[in-house]
Structure formats: C-alpha cells, structure tokens
Design a binder for these strands. Structure first.
Length: 274
DNA sequence: ACGGCCTCCTGACGGC
DNA sequence: TGCCGTCAGGAGGCCG
C-alpha cells in the first residue's frame, strides 16, 4: 500500500498518540519480516520515550531516548493506533507486532511481510545502511532540477526506473512514477541521461505537486484515524494513467498503454509523453 | 560503477 | 469447486 504519502499520513496520524509518550514494551508474534525483527525488542523498548516521530523516504522513524525504531510498511503493511490494552482488540491474521504504550498500542499488520521493524542505536542512525544510500526528500531545498540533471548525465537507465530506485529522490513509488512522468510529458522509457534540464524542472514540480496532493487527500481521511486506527490508505487522488490501460488519455483520448519495466507495470500515453 | 534480474511473502483474481 | 498462473503501492542483493 504505502508510497511516501501514505507513510507521511500514518506518521501524522500516530504522532499525537505516541510523541512524548513512553513505550512499555512490545509483543512480537512473527519475527520474520523483510529482515528478522530486532531481538529482545521488548526489553529494548521498555521505558523508551518517543521524543518525536519522523520519516525518511518510506521509512517511519520513532526517535526515542536511546535510539530509533525504524519501521517500513513494505507492500502491504498497515500500522494502527489502538487505544487501551492489547486484549481489547481481537487479533486479526497477520497482526505481527504490537508496540505498547501506557494508553494504547501501535499494531503492525503485514500480510506479505515485506515490512521491517528494526531498532537502531542512536550513534548509528546517520550511517545506517538502509538510510545512507537514500536520495533527497522531495521537498529538500538541495533537490533542484540542476541536481537531477547532473546526477543523470551519462545514465542509460530509463527514467521510470531511476525514479523507483530512489537514489536521487525518495518516495516516488510505482504509482506516482507513472503519474509524474505523465504530467511532465516524459516517456518512461527515456534514458535518464537524455532528459533536458527544462524537463527535469517540470518533472520535479510534478513530483512535488502530486505527492503533496496525495498527502492532503490522505489527510482528509485522518479524521477517521482516531476511530479506526489507521484505516487510511485509500488515496482518492484521481490517477491519470496508473491502472488505466486501454482507457482514453485524459488529455488526448489515445488509449493508455502499459509496459513492464524491471518487473513493474508502467502506464503512459504514447502521444503525450516523448 | 552500472543495469538487469531475482528474491522475500500472502492474497486476490481470472481462466480452464 | 478447485487448481494454476499472474499480479500486487518495495527494494536490497547478486551477478555479469
């Protein structure tokens, strides 16, 4: 489910419940996620205060007194705030982990188990292997069209795959890669190194607008967060190309095409994107 | 260094 | 009804 917007919506949703609150432990029912969940997580988390919630790319960060709990939702993860005691909430299939607080808990449900829950000691966070190779945040002032242009020179990699790789800019998943390329008029197959500075300017603007709109859309469902504990994730944002194979392009009515790049579906308009 | 391919895992869906 | 192949919003790791 989650691309950057959903992770950010989850972060905003849980922040009021967990920021400044003390963890009282954890229940790990299924330790085999993308990587094994940190051993002795319960002991580690007891009496850790969450100083603030944060996000880096699609990683959710709970910054605590002595370290950071790094959470990734993978393809199918849902993190919900549940008030009260764990026993108040019947377990559903794939409820793998509870993070316990005085007034409630965060429960991770992840059918495909591509997610991650890892504890990182404070001094190591900066250089953590999962974070160190990430590109810039979409709204980082150091992320400029010039930077994308320079990074991409000489690269034969199709721009769609370059976006998904996340080494230049993070958070653009499979849906928003197609959408942002459509809105900036760039053929997803085009080599990254053969895109002009002017077109990187359009692309970066498109990425920022689309991600921001998606966060705001998610934010509108945030009201439900208290009641349902994390049943967000339904982006109402109208997709212009994603999952619209064969349907008419919103701009020129040409049927939307679908192709597979690195095993991921890409949707685009042959007429509008060059 | 780069780019292509594979992998982890469960569930939903369509065809036969 | 069941069985099978395919696909799904991620992304690290390996290999050539």
């Amino acid at each position: 489910m989650p691309e950057l917007p959903e992770v950010e919506v989850v972060r905003q949703g849980i922040d009021p419940f967990v920021s400044q609150q003390c963890l009282t432990g954890a229940v790990v029912r299924q330790p085999q996620l993308r990587w094994p969940v940190t051993k002795n997580l319960h002991q580690i988390l007891v009496n850790q205060q969450v100083l603030k919630t944060d996000r880096r790319g699609k990683y959710l960060l709970l910054r605590c007194t002595d370290g950071t709990l790094l959470i990734h939702l993978g393809m199918s993860g849902v993190l919900s705030w549940l008030p009260g005691r764990p026993d108040d909430h019947p377990l559903k299939k794939h409820d793998h982990i509870d993070l316990l607080f005085g007034k409630g808990l965060l429960r991770l449900n992840d059918p495909r188990r591509f997610g991650a829950v890892l504890w990182v000691d404070s001094p190591r966070l900066e250089n953590h292997p999962l974070l160190t190779h990430l590109g810039l945040e979409p709204w980082d002032p150091f992320l400029t069209p010039q930077r994308l242009y320079q990074l991409s020179r000489g690269r034969q990699l199709p721009i769609k795959q370059a976006l998904l790789a996340g080494h230049w800019v993070v958070g653009v998943g499979n849906i928003y890669a197609s959408e942002s390329l459509f809105r900036s008029g760039i053929d997803p197959r085009r080599a990254a190194g053969r895109i002009s500075l002017q077109r990187y300017d359009k692309l970066l603007n498109a990425i920022r607008q689309i991600l921001q709109a998606a966060i705001e859309q998610g934010g509108s469902t945030l009201k439900d967060f208290r009641g349902h504990g994390g049943e967000t994730g339904q982006f109402q944002t109208a997709h212009q190309v994603y999952d619209r194979a064969g349907m008419p392009c919103t701009q020129c009515s040409t049927p939307i095409r679908v192709l597979v790049q690195s095993g991921r579906s890409t949707y685009y308009c042959l007429q509008c994107q060059r």
